[in-house]
């Protein structure tokens, strides 16, 4: 892998982490001293993606704005890596009129048609629409692909299996991505899933399945390269599972009392791990790290400023936009 690509992956991961840390700060800023989920400038459930940056960075490095991504209830990392407008995404998270959904969607319902990005708050149900986007690309004779993302818990849902069968049957240009962060809220994968690797399930649909074990962005990049190329070439879908890490809670406010693995979590954080690797190989130094961090911070704070300055929607307009 060339140096420019490796540094790009690092920059994307840094941008995502910077974003999630800023949202974390903004989310909790006005929920003190008593946490009230419905209060504050960012109300509602908040599912942050810290620790899962390698999946989004590694997969989306192969995509252009013509390709589609359907993400999950935990969508920020894929949105950022796929080039969703950060200003409007942030405004949506703040529920403002300049948001992607004019304040109707929220952080689990981000739609940016300019880059064919969407997400769904319902487990596994982002897979079926990706099939249709892939159908449209195929029928129009483009080489665009659709990337459908879920967590490992979704691999036990019916929509997941229906989608793999249909995509394989019709040789649709889809890459199915499973982020195995080991936890379905509080239920460990050992208590939910009958196979040790969901990639094994690909065999049941006659498609390639790969599992990346170590949350390494370069390993994800490599595996996704093959899956995306296969889809673009018209050879059909692939399944890619990444053993990743939920660095924080399922949602903000999750006490994680069930989480027996918490002590080991900081040592598994993929961002410092990758940074150290690049330093060790002489590709990054302290000045470069600071520069990447400063660039990320500037972009993120710009977006937050934009969001905060955007007006709140007029309650009188709550009934608008149900129909086109």
């Amino acid at each position: 892998m060339d140096t420019a690509t490796r540094l790009d992956l690092y920059r994307t991961m840094m941008l995502i982490r910077t974003y999630e840390e800023a949202i974390l700060r903004e989310y909790h800023a006005d929920k003190k001293p008593v946490f009230d989920i419905g209060a504050g400038a960012i109300p509602g459930e908040m599912h942050l993606s810290a620790g899962q940056e390698p999946v989004a960075a590694g997969v989306c490095a192969h995509l252009t704005s013509s390709d589609a991504v359907t993400a999950t209830h935990r969508p920020h990392h894929f949105a950022i890596a796929h080039g969703v407008d950060m200003h409007r995404m942030t405004a949506e998270i703040f529920g403002r009129v300049d948001g992607l959904g004019k304040g109707r969607g929220g952080h689990m319902h981000l739609f940016d048609p300019d880059v064919h990005f969407s997400c769904s708050g319902i487990i596994a149900e982002g897979y079926p629409p990706a099939l249709g986007q892939a159908m449209a690309f195929q029928r129009r004779g483009t080489d665009a692909v659709a990337v459908a993302v879920t967590g490992e818990g979704a691999a036990n849902q019916g929509a997941f299996h229906e989608s793999l069968n249909l995509a394989a049957l019709w040789k649709l240009p889809v890459v199915f991505v499973i982020e195995d962060n080991e936890w379905g809220i509080s239920v460990p994968r050992s208590a939910s899933t009958c196979v040790t690797s969901n990639a094994d399930r690909a065999a049941g649909y006659g498609i390639p399945g790969t599992r990346v074990e170590d949350n390494s962005v370069e390993a994800v990049h490599h595996a996704a390269s093959e899956a995306v190329a296969r889809a673009r070439a018209g050879d059909g879908p692939s399944l890619l599972e990444v053993h990743t890490l939920r660095l924080w809670g399922h949602f903000e406010g999750d006490p994680q009392a069930y989480r027996h693995d918490l002590d080991g979590v900081p040592g598994r954080d993929p961002l410092p791990t990758y940074e150290q690797k690049l330093r060790d190989e002489g590709l990054l130094d302290e000045a470069a790290v600071k520069s990447v961090a400063a660039d990320a911070s500037e972009r993120v704070e710009d977006a937050i400023t934009f969001a905060r300055r955007s007006p709140l929607p007029d309650p009188k307009e709550a009934r608008d936009l149900v129909f086109a």
């Binding site: 589609a68 897979y127 990706a130 099939l131 249709g132 892939a134 449209a136 229906e162 989608s163 069968n165």
Partner: peptide, 28 residues
């Protein structure tokens, strides 16, 4: 058969596929 498509008995998958195709501007 390209425009009149028999599907598997997978209503979530093919109705969802219709949604995705419609989002991309088709009229399924």
């Amino acid at each position: 058969p390209q425009r009149v498509v028999d599907t598997p008995i997978s209503e979530s998958a093919f109705i969802g596929a219709a949604i995705g195709a419609a989002v991309e501007g088709m009229r399924p």
